[in-house]
């Protein structure tokens, strides 16, 4: 199998940006799994509808890491609306191309980010609901949004 990564892909793999996790994220998602050979965890911090911070963890190949690095670099500072529109073709373009069998890595990275945004939006919705129905707060919000709530309160 030929695997001609571009220099930019290799650079992003060797020195990935936005590596790590966020303690109390506003949005979180995991995509893929290590059985398939690639897994990404995304963490979001959102402020006034903008992605203030985005981080990721990876169990994956060079292009898995490089695509997540480029993606997070690009969507940082974007509004949620803008970030949702960011597609995998843009990642491939940014990297100057990806080997055919590695294109799925960029697709997965985008899906992972979208999933994390969805999680953020779900938490938002839950929160809205809970502020309206304070009396049943404990019942209606799951364990998940408790962390999220405290994260928001901190701001």
């Amino acid at each position: 199998m030929s695997l001609n990564y571009t220099k930019k892909t290799i650079d992003n793999f060797l020195k990935p940006k936005n590596i790590g996790s966020i303690k109390k994220p506003d949005g979180y998602a995991q995509i893929g799994n290590m059985v398939c050979g690639d897994q990404l965890d995304f963490f979001l911090k959102v402020e006034q509808g903008k992605i203030k911070e985005v981080k990721f963890l990876s169990f994956g190949c060079a292009s898995n890491i490089a695509t997540a690095s480029v993606l997070t670099e690009k969507v940082k500072g974007m509004t949620i609306v803008q970030a949702k529109k960011y597609n995998w073709q843009k990642i491939v373009g940014e990297l100057g191309g990806l080997p055919q069998q590695k294109v799925h890595c960029s697709v997965m990275a985008v899906q992972g980010l979208k999933k994390a945004i969805e999680d953020y939006e779900n938490r938002q919705a839950t929160e809205k609901k809970s502020t309206g129905e304070k009396s049943i707060e404990k019942k209606s919000i799951g364990k998940k949004s408790t962390g999220k709530k405290s994260a928001r309160l901190k701001k």
Binding site: M1, L3, Y5, I10, F13, L14, M34, C36, G37, D38, F59, G60, C61, A62, N64, I65, Q101
Partner: peptide
């Protein structure tokens, strides 16, 4: 850690090895 990532990292240092990981297979 994933095998192909180790392989590519080592390759960038001039070391050639191989892996049986899914990511490296056609």
């Amino acid at each position: 850690v994933e095998g192909e990532a180790i392989l590519i990292d080592l390759s960038s240092k001039g070391v050639c090895v191989s892996t049986g990981s899914a990511c490296s297979a056609a």
